[in-house]
Design a binder for these strands. Structure first.
Length: 317
DNA sequence: AAGACGAAAGTGGTTGA
DNA sequence: TCAACAACTTTCGTCTT
């Protein structure tokens, strides 16, 4: 299922074959190359395989990382998209609608106009729906999210549309919020800042839409665990898997000591990574960690002080 | 000069009357 | 609806390497 996208133009049968091959390759992995543990977790929701023992992520984004394209009209969209309604439903009108003038009531022309008005409304909602889908795809692609998250986000959008929650709100805000929500639900959280960066609206609007949608759709989103951020932050900092495992260890201990209560998960993750990096000799500055995680050096310092003191970790430089 | 440290004031979100 | 509150940020001066 890896790197499927380059074969987009190829035949359907060929695609299927490739899918099977690479999936079989991943099935072969039986134990953790890191600690030798056999307790591997294959989480297709999170699109990764990881070791339950040491937390090593063996394969990330095992699902198709998605397209690099954007659709600019409905025909392009339906040709390329793998989410949403089938093509025939989408290309009934390519934007070249005919204008019918009103006749008097009872006349055939009057009925025709009325009918056309209805379809026009259908077209505009359809249009914005297609735009929303393409935005979800664009942003999910920029965030390197697997297709199942895109589909979940698209499904939520559809649901919101049925409940008429979109009217009067910006599509950008809603789609951004849905991506943020689904990432959390799937255990691969992105920071609000990361979502904002690839979105076309501000953080304020995203969080407003976020709260609104949670309330209106009655969605449950449990608070993100610091651990969920560790693999991504570590790889952004080019840190080894030992450090990643160590940082996760630190967080688990911190959680036991109730040092994580009421604290922002990202700050905890950042501090744990900072400590783990220093202890292993692969030092990263507070600034480097801060740039990647989006929390300030001050917060990293505060968490890092708390953690090292309470957990009695000696951080000697 | 760069990194780490920490005080103090400011910001935005949550909570409880 | 408003005020109190905790977590986090911004800013900035100081110390350390």
């Amino acid at each position: 299922m890896v790197a499927l996208k380059k074969d987009n133009e190829e035949g359907e049968d060929k695609k299927k074959g490739k899918e099977k091959d690479s999936a079989a390759g991943l099935q072969d992995i039986k134990e953790c190359p890191e600690c030798g543990s056999k307790s591997l977790v294959r989480d297709y929701n999170k699109a990764e395989i990881f070791c339950a023992n040491c937390g090593l992520v063996i394969a990330e984004n095992i699902v198709d990382p998605g397209p690099e394209w954007r659709a600019f009209d409905s025909e392009q969209m339906s040709r390329r998209a793998r989410v949403g309604a089938p093509m025939t439903y989408r290309i009934h009108d390519k934007g070249l609608s005919t204008i019918v003038t009103w006749g008097s009531p009872g006349q055939r022309q009057y009925k025709l106009k009325k009918w056309q008005q209805r379809t026009h409304i259908a077209n505009t909602t359809e249009r914005s729906f297609i735009f929303a889908l393409s935005e979800i795809d664009r942003m999910a692609c920029a965030l390197k999210l697997p297709v199942n998250i895109r589909e979940a986000a698209s499904m939520l959008y559809r649901k919101a549309m049925k409940k008429h929650l979109i009217r009067g709100r910006s599509i950008e805000g809603i789609t951004s919020a849905f991506l943020y929500i689904t990432c959390r639900q799937y255990g691969v959280p992105r920071t609000l800042e990361e979502v904002r960066e690839i979105s076309r609206v501000g953080q304020k609007e995203i969080s407003r839409a976020y709260r609104f949608l949670l309330r209106e759709l009655d969605l449950k989103v449990s608070p993100a665990s610091p651990i969920e951020f560790v693999p991504r932050f570590c790889s952004m900092l080019n840190l080894s898997s030992e450090i990643r495992a160590h940082a996760i260890e630190i967080i688990k201990k911190a959680a036991e000591a109730e040092l994580t209560n009421g604290r922002g998960p990202i700050g905890i993750a950042a501090a744990a990574i900072y400590i783990a990096a220093i202890l292993s000799g692969e030092h990263r500055t507070q600034k480097e960690v801060s740039d990647v995680t989006g929390v300030t050096e001050v917060t990293i310092r505060n968490r890092y002080k708390e953690l090292s003191e309470q957990l009695e970790i000696d951080v000697l430089l």
